[in-house]
Design a protein around this nucleic acid. Structure first.
Lengths: 340, 340
DNA sequence: CTATCTTCAGAAAACCTTTTCGGCTTCTTT
DNA sequence: AAAGAAGCCGAAAAGGTTTTCTGAAGATAG
């Protein structure tokens, strides 16, 4: 920045001097305390306005013990999950009231420790820890002096408070939708078996199929979270089980691949085969032919709740322990229901 | 968080008491100042360790005038651009040295003002303002008491310091690559004409074609940044100009649509038609058939430089004014060059 | 007119760390 | 042994705000 003078920031003392009062009175006037005559208050407010005074949050925080800041410690490099959560948290806090420190540990425990120290040194009021998978992650331990909420990836310690998408419920919800659409011969292609998200969704799928008196066509097909796998798996599937009328994919990426391959093999979506995915990643779901039905994990909601918990804990309320699940949301598009 | 007592945070006084020295000595011992006997220093360090003392950055910042925090003020809702920039900034600062406040104004000027006040109140050492388009954005004005660097979207005020991708150069680079691949009948489909990014890339495309003694096939086709438009435009293009041997798309999304349509119309990529995009958005480029050649805007580099500028300005160095352009980078994949 | 009450303003302490400077102890030198 | 030097440590101030408490002035009642 080129056009600023590095002049000292304006302090409450300056305001008080201009208004002809003491700093104590100025403080009370600006903070709406009583014990200040109206005319005096007005003088102070005008002085503050004129100097465009903004109180030093460090000094305030030093005294109050609260800083109005929250740390968001993430390992989610790509930001697919952390951003909706960040936005939800900002919503819950209210713009300008609370500021969020965002730190990316890049999946590195050492770096996470560095960031953690820095955040605690800066006296954040609370912490939200966001993982990049839904598998449990190591707890930060019991000695963190501020409330901690684990989001997306739950903590592996039962005494911590965690919030994670209900993937089992999501799997169930997906199958219920397909069944409601009249599909009976359903297959499931998903990502790496190492991911709890994949296994949980598959479990939900099985449960819902059983409840509907149906059987999965073929086995659950685990491999990688990519379009390529979606294409390859779909090709195999349609060859071995030509009777299939729905392919449920473990992610929108896989679903995009499936869509392509179904199309290539001369079948129509959704008339011959319905396709759906998980995550509701808009750039993928709303640009395909046809648009892709998907299960949204409600991450923004998750972020809002996490933030609310942090604040509730700060206010001394008991937010409990253990892992709570966030309900998913079905977003119906043209890949399962023919457009009117 | 359930398993913490809300006990007062441990302060330097506690450490000093445990070590049997004064706070002054404790401070010097922990900060590597001399005038402390080695044995004393060791006692203090051990005491600090034992109490897991972490110095209060607020008090430190209050005194030093520097807080070791930087504000990242963004309007980039989706985070496509802001996250690489954030990561670059973190890299430049070094993990734990500097923490970043991330604020999302959601394109709302009022909200931006709120966040700005909050950031200045928290005494950030500097600001990076990230827009969501490369069109110039309103300056924050000359009265910000800390260094400001505008990233991605430059400021509309010539006295500010801005850093933005070189889209003209990117357009040129793309055409040069296609020409180097032996393509001579090149068309250009791009996004909304209202975006400077679209116009600048088109300008670079024209310049490079002229330099190569070639002409664009058809007009530059402006519409929206979507796969759908990529498909539709490609269909029109191939019908009107069947001789086309390369389609340069203004974004990877458009390019994905183009790829699909070329494929549908029975032509092969890259043998009959080369396709390429801009942005190098990996989820799109590395999952298509074939993988998509793209121009990467080097956003992480941009973020690193922006951060370095903020710090240079803090150190009193002159970082100049005006807009500097960041060089793009060509990422070659299978959509322009047949795989070996 | 005095005594009590109310209203409002200011002084001072507190929050926690860093730095400067004075002073005490120990060692060296003559 | 005395004087000077060097090495260490601690007291105090500074940074900006909030809060509590004291005190002064004006208002009301007796």
């Amino acid at each position: 920045m080129a056009r600023t003078d590095p002049a000292r920031a304006v302090t409450l003392t300056d305001v008080a001097r201009l208004a002809g009062v003491s700093v104590a009175t100025a403080s009370k006037a600006l903070n709406g305390r009583d014990q200040v005559k109206d005319s005096t208050r007005q003088r102070v407010v005008e002085a503050a306005e004129r100097l465009s005074f903004s109180p030093n949050a460090l000094a305030r925080g030093l005294l109050a013990g609260r800083t109005g800041t929250v740390g968001l410690l993430t390992s989610d490099l790509e930001g697919r999950f952390v951003l909706p959560i960040l936005m939800g948290a900002e919503d819950a806090f209210g713009a300008g009231q609370v500021s969020v420190f965002l730190c990316d540990a890049r999946g590195d425990a050492i770096r996470e420790q560095y960031h953690l120290r820095a955040l605690l040194g800066r006296r954040v009021d609370g912490l939200i820890v966001v993982g990049r998978q839904t598998d449990p992650r190591p707890s930060l331990g019991p000695d963190i002096p501020v409330p901690v909420v684990y989001a997306y990836a739950p903590s592996d310690h039962p005494d911590d408070r965690s919030l994670t998408p209900d993937n089992t419920g999501a799997g169930r919800m997906a199958v219920e939708h397909l069944v409601a659409c009249g599909r009976t011969r359903i297959a499931h292609i998903t990502g790496e078996h190492a991911y709890a998200a994949a296994r949980d969704r598959a479990a939900g799928v099985r449960a819902a199929l059983e409840a509907a008196g149906l059987e999965l066509v073929g086995d659950v097909m685990y491999s990688e979270w990519s379009e390529r796998w979606g294409r390859d798996a779909t090709a195999m599937l349609l060859e071995q089980h030509p009777e299939i009328d729905a392919i449920l994919c473990g992610s929108d990426q896989i679903a995009r691949g499936a869509l392509d391959m179904v199309h290539d093999l001369g079948r129509s979506v959704p008339d011959d085969v319905a396709v759906m995915g998980f995550d509701n990643w808009e750039v993928l779901t709303t640009n395909s032919r046809p648009e892709l039905t998907s299960i949204d994990a409600n991450l923004q909601q998750l972020g809002r709740t996490a933030a609310q918990w942090v604040f509730a804990a700060l206010d001394g309320k008991d937010i409990g322990t253990g892992t709570q699940f966030v309900d998913p949301r079905l977003v119906i598009r043209g890949s399962t229901v023919a457009r009117r």
